[in-house]
Structure formats: structure tokens, C-alpha cells
Design a protein around this nucleic acid. Sequence first.
RNA 1: UCAGAUUAUUGACUGAUCGCGUGCUUUAUCGUACGAGGAAAGUCCGGGCAGCGUAGGGAAAGAUAGUUGCUAACGGCAACCGGGGGCAACCCUAGGGAAAGUGCCACAGAAACAGUACCGCCCUGGUGUAAAAGCCGGAGUAAGGGUGAAAUGAGUGGGGUAAGAGCCCACAGUUCCAUGCGGUGACGCAUGGAGGUGGUAAACCCUAUCUGCUGCAAGGAGGUGGAUCCAACACAGGUUUCCCGCCUGGGUCCACCACAAAAUCCGCUUGAUUCCGAUGGCAACGUCGGAGCUAGAUAGAUGAUCAGUUAGAACAGAACCCGGCUUACGGAUAAUCUGACAUU
RNA 2: CGCGGGGUAGAGCAGUGGCAGCUCGUGUGGCUCAUAACCACAAGGUCGCAGGUUCGAGUCCUGCCCCCGCUA
Length: 128
Amino acid sequence: MISRVHRFHGHGSLRFVYQHGQTVRGPLTTVKFVVNGRRQTYRLAVVVSKKISKSAVVRNRIRRRLYESVRQHEPELTQPYDIVITVFHEQLATLPPDELNRLVRAQLRQAGILAAKPAQSSTSHGKI
RNA sequence: UCAGAUUAUUGACUGAUCGCGUGCUUUAUCGUACGAGGAAAGUCCGGGCAGCGUAGGGAAAGAUAGUUGCUAACGGCAACCGGGGGCAACCCUAGGGAAAGUGCCACAGAAACAGUACCGCCCUGGUGUAAAAGCCGGAGUAAGGGUGAAAUGAGUGGGGUAAGAGCCCACAGUUCCAUGCGGUGACGCAUGGAGGUGGUAAACCCUAUCUGCUGCAAGGAGGUGGAUCCAACACAGGUUUCCCGCCUGGGUCCACCACAAAAUCCGCUUGAUUCCGAUGGCAACGUCGGAGCUAGAUAGAUGAUCAGUUAGAACAGAACCCGGCUUACGGAUAAUCUGACAUU
RNA sequence: CGCGGGGUAGAGCAGUGGCAGCUCGUGUGGCUCAUAACCACAAGGUCGCAGGUUCGAGUCCUGCCCCCGCUA
């Protein structure tokens, strides 16, 4: 699970991301994100619909795995992004850990949240 | 050995690294303790708790339906009674009333509860004939055939008769009533008497008992004073379907003190509590003593990676709290019991 | 948390306890030079699942499963 500092609180801030954020579609997930100028740190939410799986255990498992996967990239998340990850498929509950990490990293890079390579992080930082 | 019946338990563990929630401790981030279930599920019943100026009476509506007990309560549980199934262990059972009334019983069949005669059986009038058969009528008959889930609802044997029939008798069975005995009771047993009036109430209905409504997004975290408008035996509103009855003034604005955002705090976990022992009871369960504190989140806390053990893979995630019910559940273990076969 | 509606043929829907039906679609044949339309015939159903009441259940009762919707 992720620390309470990096969670969303209330529905208003989530609605803002849905209305104003950019979208990056992946094979199993969609990432919506926006830069929040009023905050110092990033925030993250994972959305798992009841249509994905009827079981609360499976839904919780998907949510925890995604939180953990993003958390491992925390040192690279320097900008105050608001990120919402929406899940499409039940596969995420049983996917091997390496593959899950690879998917998340690829999608975050595509969104520009992570730098293309860790070495170039300083240059891309300047662009923003 | 094989095949079964019932009940109960368990619901992977260890180590390392990185993380999450709450409490405590310090202090400005270290440390430490604890951290999902037997069903947390479905939301099918019952209760606690909270609010609603009334919750009282009646009707309507809904629920339940053998007896006795247990319980805070229940539509739950236990024991027992009646009925059904199984060789047995054991299992299932909405199990009050059909003589209060109304409805329904398709097709088939003569007829489906109104009173009825299709084929038969028997007697008889006419006709007919050598005598019969046959044909046209009358009267009796529910024993036989056929239809149907069910046929007038009491089976078998005997008597009886023109032929038959509980029409009569014996035995068996059944319903009701009375008496006696046993049981708290449902009911059981025995004796005597009477009756032989389908089925369906998970059809309407009748009888008995129970139910005020809303639900933690309940509800609370503001108190005092003043002004003005409308109303005042009326009218209006409330009582969450109706009647009686009962209850109540309402709206707007201002000032002062307090509070300082609500994306917060309380409710929020010590409770019909858990474990152990003793004791009453066939049991459900109760009583007494000792010890313990065991999630409390709020976009929602138990995860990720690696290594090891192993045959190790189930169903599944607290959201105010309890008691039940129902449903899902891999593997393993234990106890008691039944039947069959074999051996001694 | 509290409620409501539904599940019947490939699709959309009917169905007072007594033979499961309608429209479209599908197949075969006809009509046409050919296609459509039209005409005739036919196939196609564990009535969501399980148990019960009844002589008999799609229908009545009980318990489950799934889908859709509503209030705060």
C-alpha cells in the first residue's frame, strides 16, 4: 500500500484529473495524469471496477500490486503529478511480477512522468 | 477389508530486504506493540443503539403455524410427539381448521359431489319363435367391466337376495365421542359407544400469536436576546394506507458571545465479550469463580521480491455492533455408530 | 444501507394450475431471365438452477445464481 501522503482525498480532485488530464492507453490499463501546481509531491489512485472481477479479494490484489509497482519508481517521481490508473482486465492479478513492472514502467515513460532514461532525467526536467 | 451415517477440528509455516494502518513513546524520525473470516459473503430473519411530539384504539396489510423448553429476541436452536424414506446407523417433514362460507378439479368418462345407469346383471309387459336369440318399453341394482390422479369412498370371508348392496354378521383397519391409565404437554395404550359426508387452504378464507416508522449517509459537535409578517374556540400541519383519537403555532431578518472549516471530530468499539475451571440440566442453555483486552480504516490499512520446508493448490477481504439462517469451500485429521463379506 | 423489475426458440416478446405460443430471423420448395418482395411447408425449447405443495407446475411456495434500474 502507498503512504497516505500520496493518496487522493475526496471526489473533487479526482474529477479534476478526469476532466483536464492527458490519457495514455496501454494493453491492460489507462493512465490519466495532470500536473498539480499546488502540491509538493505526487498523488496516485488506482480504479478497479466491479465489472473487472466480482471478487473483492481479486480487486484488492490488483490495486495493491499496482500501488507497489509505482512505489518502486518513487525516487524518479520528482514532479507533483496527479495520476489515475484505470484497470481493464483481470489478468493483472496473476501476471508475473517482472512483466507487471515492465508494463508500468513503459506506460509511465510514454506519459512523460518518468524520464526516458534515468541518466537524462536532468535534461527533461528542464523542459517542463 | 469394502460400502456408508453423524459430529467436530484445521483453514500452511520460517527467515531476509523494502513498504501500509492504529496506539504508545519520544521528538521532528527513529523505536516498539497489535493488525480480516469461518463464513468477514448473501442481506433472509431477530435484537441492541439512535432519531422521529405519540407510537393509544379499530380496520387494512404482512409474517408465523405439532408440543414443551432455551433465549434479549427470533421465522433460530434443543428435546419429544405424529407422518414419510432407508436392511441399518440415520435422514426428511409450512405438521391448525375442508361439518362457517365461496371457488377449482383439464382431457377422458354415463357421472367429478349436483345426485347419476354407458356396457353389464336381474325381474317383468309387448313383439317374435317349436323353444331361444333379437327388437320396443317398465322397474330394480353401484357387486363386475371400461375412463381417470381420484368414482360415492370400510378391506377380507360368510350370510342374504330375483339380481345386488354395511342390508346383516365375524375379523382387521379408520374417524369422532366418553371413561380409565401414563405423560407438564403434543400424544400413546386399553375399554365402551356412535358414524360411515372425495381432493385442494404453498386457492380465497377462518382461528391463534406477533409487527409504530426510519435507519450509523441514523444522530450530534450553537446558545442567548430582539424585531417584523401571517395565524390564533377557526384554519393549517403532523401522526408515512384509512377512520376515531391525540399532538403542535409557523416563516423571515438582526445583534451579542463562542467557533474558524466540514476534505474535520464524536458516534467507533469493554461487549447479551473471549478463554479456563467448577456446577445445574437428556440437551439447547443457565449460574458461580478466576484470568484477559483481541482491527477500527475513511478512495478505504496485511502487500512486493528472494530463499527454505512440503503432496501443499480451497472458498474468500471487517465498514455501527451482536444472535441466528442460507450459500461457497482443496486437502488432512479425530471421535462415535451401521451394514455386508472374510478369518479366529 | 434500503428497495424495485426481470430471466420462456437465434433476437424481441405473450402465456386464467391441464397439448408452450406470436412476430422477425433460419432452412427447403415455388414464383422470376436473376435478386428482393410474395406464396407453401418445416426445423428449432433442460421455460435461469435446486427442492417442495398438487393427480398434474412455465404458472403456487422456499432457498440459491445472474442481469437491469432506483433513493440517500
